[in-house]
Design a protein around this nucleic acid. Structure first.
Lengths: 226, 226
DNA sequence: ATAAAAATATGATGTTTATCACATTTTTAA
DNA sequence: TTAAAAATGTGATAAACATCATATTTTTAT
């Protein structure tokens, strides 16, 4: 199905504001929209990467096969690009993307995307800035993951959901206990134990997947100190 | 001290081959060379970032303050750019760079660099590719660091030195045991123990900082399986 | 060359957290 | 609505590794 509405939806994006109308039309002609249900794979690790994906709505988890188990690298929330590093950096996807909420996305052919970069330096520049910011965030995420104990790692992720995904101190966890374990690299059981322990201490309240942060400053302290 | 030799030294770089002579001259006029001894800081975390640095010769460690301790993110070997993500991605350095071998480097003003990106789309494109490749590598490094046990992490780093830094199965460790601990996120003592254990098993030989990989396939197996 | 400082080695002990085992709750599908 | 499947909770045990305590070796500076 072909989309001619790129100029409408893409203009919302920070990065795409640098494209002019004719450029957006080029994009529109080679842009294919698709929707994904929760749990569906958008692209798969080790498959050939030939598209840049613009995530219009929804929430996605990026997963990579580690030496021991699957690791959830991060979540990606619309609107944003999906698969930039893996499509531009390698022929083959270095990680998978799976919808964890209903997703609508636009598949842009890699050659069309590359051409946009070539004809529009401002667009290139914005992409460079975005890549740099992502790398910095990735450094910080990695260091926290490696150095903190599980209490701190889990606390950090609860704050990440609140501040960066939902912009609310009360939210429904987008992941199961087992997926959270894949994100903070621990066992399913330990996630249960620590969530319940944080609730017992009055720092959060839990009811199934519903989470409410009650004592944010303490949660931040746990996240920072380990 | 002003350098007019950019066109000579920079042309060796993959990325810079896309600049033409007049662009290289612009670069040369605003380029300041500097040398650093082992142990000297090239740029410091939390300081204002206003330069892109082209590393001409030498070896550098990138260090970031974690919640518990200093973490060595990776080494950077000349010729390459230094500080791209932190200079383009934030006003302030998100990590430090310290010479671990004598270094000569060229400091390029950020505005001059940005202008080069703007006037030369091929150059932008190469930078984008480099950033993407770096991010993919960082993903893999992070997952190994988080999931593997120390044997695997240390084995991985011995291979990293051999294959990516020295291109030789025999080399002098560029870091102390304590710095290696900062790289694989363990204690100084554990690094000692495991290096000696690998030597006792005949997988490597050690004499001070001199390392020789004797059984590479086994070391690779340890690195991959944990 | 020699003393002082730094780096490295190695054993003993304790903590964190994984794993196993099983119970309970929630969700899904017929 | 009910049975089956999936997700979650919780205790007991075990393993990996940090930390502490010294001892020894190597490097540095005079």
């Amino acid at each position: 199905m072909e989309s001619s509405g790129c100029s409408i939806c893409l203009l919302k994006s920070e990065v795409v504001k640098d494209l002019d109308t004719s450029e957006l039309n080029t994009l529109g002609k080679s842009c294919v929209e698709a929707v994904f249900k929760k749990g569906e794979t958008i692209f798969k690790q080790n498959a050939l990467s030939s598209n840049i994906i613009y995530l219009q709505t929804g929430l996605v988890k990026l997963m990579i096969e580690g030496p021991q188990r699957i690791q959830i690298l991060r979540l990606k929330k619309a609107p944003c690009y999906l698969g930039l590093p893996t499509t531009m950096g390698d022929k083959i996807n270095n990680y998978s993307a799976v919808a964890i909420e209903p997703v609508s996305a636009c598949f842009i052919d890699i050659n069309v995307f590359k051409n946009l970069l070539r004809i529009n330096p401002d667009f290139s520049y914005e992409i460079i800035i975005e890549l740099c910011k992502n790398e910095l965030k990735q450094f910080h995420r990695c260091v926290k993951l490696v150095q903190n104990e599980i209490y701190g790692r889990l606390a950090g992720n609860l704050l990440y959901f609140a501040d960066e995904i939902y912009q609310s101190q009360e939210y429904k966890l987008p992941l199961s206990r087992s997926e959270i374990a894949d994100m903070v690299c621990t066992s399913r059981e330990t996630v249960s134990r620590i969530l319940n322990s944080l609730a017992k201490d009055g720092i959060i309240s839990i009811s199934g997947k519903q989470i409410k942060i009650l004592n944010k400053s303490l949660l931040e302290k746990i996240s920072e100190k380990g």
